[in-house]
Design a protein around this nucleic acid. Structure first.
Length: 586
DNA sequence: GCCGTTTTCGGCCCGACTGTTTTCAGTCG
C-alpha cells in the first residue's frame, strides 16, 4: 500500500524536523504515532479521505486532519514545506540507515551540506571512503565503523517477506536453537507471531536458564552472515539470505511477559500500558510492577488475567478494538485449524484444455493428503476449460465426461483404501468475464456440484463496474463461492476496487460464500474486509487454491487470516459437516 | 499534536544496546 507508506513517511519527516529543530518531544511523538497508524492501515488512506473518514485513524486529530486534507487535495502541505526548509534534505535519506535517527542524520547532513535527498546516501559513501567523516561531535571512530557496517548491510538487504517465507526461515532457526540442551523453548515473536501477511524482521524468543551459553549457541548459527548487535539478553543478526533476525532470551519465570511484550503490536502494548497505568501498574518484558512489587508471568494467559482481561489471541493484537472487547469480558472464540473439515478449492491434474494452469497432483494424491489432514470432504475446482470453437453440445459432453471419469476414479480410490469415508464434490473455478458473464453457460454450470467464480483478468475496472460484475456473476444458482475476492497479490498487485459493502449485502441475502484464499501471496480476503463481511452477516470459506498436494498445508495461513478478521467457527462454512455445508447450496 | 464513561488540561510506554561520556543521549522495537 504505497500511498499509506508515502503518507507515513511524510509525517515521519516532519517529526524528524521537529525533533532536531525544537524541544517539544510530545509533538514529535504525536506525528510518529500518526505515521505508524497510517502505515498499519489495511485500506488505502486516500480511500478513507474520499469517504471523509480520516478522523477515524487513531492519532489523527484536528491539526493533522487539516494537513492531510491539504495533502490529498493539493499534493503538498504548506506548513510541512516550510518546516522542511529548516534542514538539509539529505538527512531524510540518511535516516533510512539502521542506527541513524534524526539527530545523527541532521548532524551529518548539516556538517557536510547534503542537500539532495536522492544522492545523500552515495555522498555519504564517498565521505566515508575518503575518510572525511571526522570532526563530528559525539561521533568518533566506533560510530563511523558502525555506520559503515550498517550501510554495507543495507545495500544487501531485502524488503518485506511473505508470511510463509518468514515462517520457513524462523522454523529453520528454531530447529537449530532446539539443538542446544540449554534451549527450553523457542517461539517466533512480533508480526510473525501476529500472522501479518508480510513480515519485515524476524523476531525469535528463547527460554533458557543459561543465557550466556544459549547466546553463544545462537551466534554460532551457520546461516548468520553478520552480527549487528549483541548483548546479554538480545542479539540482532543478519542471515546469509539477506534477512535480519532479532533473538531475545528469557528466564522461564518471565517467559509469558516476554512473549506478550515482543509480540506487540506496539500500539496494542501502548494501549495496554496506558490502561495499566491507571491502576498504578507498570508493564514491561519482565512483568508487571504494582505497588513496588514485580509480578512475574510464565504464561501470557496469566499476564492478561492479572490485568483483568481474557487472553487476547495473538492475531488480533493490533489495537483495533480488541482491548475494548476484552474489557467487556468478551470471549473471542476464533476459528482454529482443527475445526476445518474440508478444502473446496483444489486444482487436480485432470487433463482437459484448461484456461489457466493445471494442477500437478492426481485425485488420489489429493484424497490421500485430505485424509492425512483429517478432512471429511474435498471439492475439486479445476479451471474452466477454454472450449474454443466448440458447440454448446460438445462442451456439455466434455464436462459430463469429466464428471463420469472423476466419479469412477473416486470409486476406484474408495475400493482401494476402504473406510476412509471422504466425500467428493465436483466443481470448477469459473472465470468472471469483464462483462460479469461467467465463462460457462447456465446449462454447463448445471453439470457441476458447485462453482467458485473468480476474476482473473481486467482488474482495473471502475469500482461501480467491478461491483456490478461480481454481483452478476454470483447471481447464478451454482455460483456458490467468490474466489480470491479482491484479486490482490501481495507485493505484486493491489486489491481491485469494489463496493464491498454492497457485495457483502448481496452475499448475505443470497447465501453466497466469500473465500479466504490461503495462498501465501494472496491471503484474500484481507482481514479488515473479513471483519466487515462478518459484521454484515456473510459466511466465509477457507480454501487453499492448491495446485499441488504440498500446498494443501497452507490452509493454516488461511485460518490465521480468518482469525485476524475475528472469524469464529460459525462464520466459516467449511467447519461444518458436508451435510450442513450442502444445506447452504439450497 | 493527541486524548478523555473519574479529565477539554495536563498528561503522554518501557527497557536494551551502543558509544561517548563520567551520568547520558540516541536509536530501536
Amino acid at each position: 500500500m504505497t500511498i499509506n507508506r508515502e503518507t507515513a513517511q511524510l509525517l515521519k519527516k516532519v517529526a524528524a524536523v521537529f525533533r532536531v529543530k525544537e524541544g517539544d518531544s510530545f509533538r514529535v511523538k504525536a506525528y510518529n504515532n500518526a505515521a505508524s497508524a497510517i502505515d498499519n492501515l489495511s485500506e488505502p488512506i486516500d480511500e478513507l479521505w474520499r469517504q471523509g473518514k480520516l478522523d477515524t485513524i487513531p492519532g489523527v486529530g484536528k491539526s493533522l486532519l487539516g494537513y492531510l486534507e491539504e495533502y490529498f487535495t493539493k499534493g503538498k502541505v504548506r506548513h510541512f514545506e516550510s518546516q522542511f526548509k529548516k534542514v538539509p534534505a539529505g538527512m531524510f535519506a540518511l535516516m533510512n540507515i539502521r542506527g541513524v535517527g534524526p539527530m545523527t542524520a541532521y548532524k551529518i547532513a548539516h556538517r557536510f551540506h547534503l542537500k539532495d535527498e536522492s544522492t545523500a546516501l552515495a555522498d555519504l559513501q564517498v565521505l566515508i571512503r575518503k575518510g572525511k567523516l571526522t570532526n563530528l561531535e559525539s561521533f568518533k571512530q566506533k560510530s563511523i565503523a558502525r555506520l559503515t557496517k550498517a550501510l554495507k548491510i543495507k545495500s544487501t538487504g531485502k524488503g518485506r517477506l511473505l508470511l510463509s517465507d518468514a515462517l520457513a526461515i524462523a522454523e529453520a532457526f528454531i530447529s537449530y536453537l532446539r539443538l542446544s540442551p540449554f534451549t527450553m523453548d523457542a517461539e517466533p515473536l512480533g508480526s510473525l507471531r501476529r500472522r501479518l501477511s508480510t513480515v519485515g524482521d524476524i523476531d525469535l524468543a528463547v527460554k533458557t536458564k543459561k543465557p550466556e551459553e544459549t547466546m553463544a549457541h545462537v551466534l554460532a548459527y551457520p546461516q548468520i552472515s553478520a552480527v549487528i548487535t549483541s548483548g546479554d539478553k538480545t542479539s540482532h543478526v543478519k542471515l546469509k539470505n539477506g534477512f535480519e533476525v532479532d533473538i531475545k532470551l528469557s528466564e522461564p519465570e518471565d517467559w509469558g511477559s516476554l512473549l506478550q511484550h515482543f509480540t506487540g503490536s506496539k500500539m496494542h502494548n501502548i494501549h495496554l500500558r496506558t490502561l495499566a497505568k491507571e491502576k498504578g501498574y507498570s508493564l514491561s518484558e519482565y512483568g508487571i510492577k504494582a505497588k513496588g512489587k514485580v509480578h512475574h508471568f510464565q504464561t501470557e494467559t496469566d499476564f492478561y488475567h492479572f490485568l483483568g482481561l481474557p487472553l487476547i489471541p495473538t492475531e488480533i493484537r493490533e489495537d483495533t478494538g480488541e482491548i475494548e472487547l476484552a474489557l467487556k469480558k468478551q470471549d473471542f472464540n476464533l476459528v482454529e485449524l482443527k475445526d476445518i473439515k474440508g478444502d473446496l478449492h483444489l486444482h487436480s491434474n485432470f487433463d482437459f484444455p484448461s484456461s489457466h494452469d493445471l494442477g500437478g497432483s492426481s485425485l488420489h494424491e489429493i484424497l490421500d493428503r485430505a485424509y492425512e489432514l483429517g478432512y471429511e470432504y474435498i471439492g475439486l475446482s479445476d479451471h474452466n476449460p477454454k472450449f474454443v470453437g466448440l458447440t454448446e453440445k460438445a462442451k456439455e459432453k466434455i464436462l459430463i465426461a469429466r464428471r463420469k471419469y472423476l466419479e469412477q476414479d473416486f470409486r476406484a480410490y474408495e475400493n482401494r483404501v476402504k473406510n476412509r469415508g471422504i466425500k467428493l464434490l465436483i466443481g470448477l473455478e469459473v472465470d468472471i468475464r469483464p462483462s460479469g458473464e461467467l465463462a460457462l453457460s447456465e446449462d454447463l454450470l448445471n453439470t457441476l456440484d458447485y462453482a467458485i467464480v473468480s476474476i482473473h483478468a481486467s482488474f482495473d475496472q471502475t469500482k461501480e463496474a467491478n461491483t456490478r460484475r461480481i454481483i452478476q456473476a454470483l447471481s447464478h444458482p451454482k455460483a456458490l463461492i467468490l474466489g480470491h475476492p479482491t484479486g490482490r497479490q501481495i507485493n505484486e498487485r493491489e486489491p481491485l476496487q469494489a463496493d464491498w459493502s454492497e457485495i457483502f449485502n448481496f452475499c448475505a441475502q443470497n447465501h453466497k460464500l466469500l473465500e479466504i484464499n490461503a495462498s501465501p501471496d494472496r491471503l484474500d480476503l484481507p482481514d479488515d474486509l473479513i471483519r466487515q463481511a462478518i459484521a454484515q452477516g456473510v459466511r466465509l470459506v477457507i480454501d487453499t487454491d492448491s495446485h499441488e498436494v504440498s500446498q494443501m498445508d497452507f490452509l493454516k495461513l488461511g485460518v490465521w487470516q480468518a482469525r485476524k478478521g475475528y472469524a469464529t467457527k460459525n462464520d466459516i462454512a467449511n467447519t461444518h459437516s458436508l451435510q450442513k455445508f450442502l444445506a447452504v447450496l439450497k
